[in-house]
């Protein structure tokens, strides 16, 4: 699946670019999230009461942050997975298992992207409780995040090992 020709190099560069974008966008949302929660505390003790929308805005910022960061985590292989078994399987069996794994990832990401779009569109008429905006705005994070992961996944398939970051300390929780 991996090619080392021109397309592969381009794909690897795009994968890197997508990680940078996904990281910055997610980091920004995370900062908004923390900032809004801190503002809520300051408002409560500084002005006696905090506006009711802080809770909702903070939640939505975090939802966008974690979904946007998905593509970056995917490139770095930081999504929790267990690969001790696969790496030990011999030749043909190992490749069959690997193919099935890739197909499953592709299918699930595609499904969540398409269904997420359908869903986000469908609930345009429902509004959120505090901010009173269409529920589409927070829920669109799902198709966007899953879609970016799908693109990232395909870029990694095309780009091969070059699309992966160099092996380094992996962070887990």
């Amino acid at each position: 699946m991996a090619s080392d020709g021109g397309i592969g190099r381009h794909a690897a560069a795009w994968a890197r670019g997508l990680e940078v974008f996904s990281t910055w966008a997610a980091g920004l949302c995370l900062c908004v999230n923390i900032g809004v929660v801190l503002f809520g505390i300051v408002a409560r003790y500084g002005f006696g009461s905090s506006p009711i929308w802080t809770d909702e805005l903070a939640r939505y910022a975090l939802i966008w942050a974690v979904l946007l960061a998905g593509a970056a985590a995917l490139r770095r292989g930081e999504h929790m997975q267990i690969d001790i078994l696969v790496s030990r399987l011999p030749g043909l069996l190992g490749r069959a298992v690997d193919l099935l794994r890739r197909l499953a990832i592709f299918a699930v990401l595609l499904f969540m992207t398409v269904m997420g779009t359908v869903y986000a569109e469908k609930i345009w008429g429902m509004s959120t409780l505090a901010l009173n905006v269409p529920r589409t705005i927070p829920t669109a994070a799902i198709p966007v995040g899953m879609g970016l992961m799908l693109v990232q996944f395909l870029l990694i398939q095309i780009g091969g090992p070059a699309a992966r970051p160099p092996e380094r300390e992996r962070v887990t929780v």
Binding site: R44, G48, S49, S50, I52, D55, L129, A130
Partner: peptide
């Protein structure tokens, strides 16, 4: 303690404050 904005409006009308 307020559950939503309408409760905040109610408390503020009485000269109290509402906090979620």
């Amino acid at each position: 303690r307020a559950m939503d904005e309408s409760q905040v409006a109610l408390y503020e009308a009485f000269g109290a404050s509402g906090t979620p």
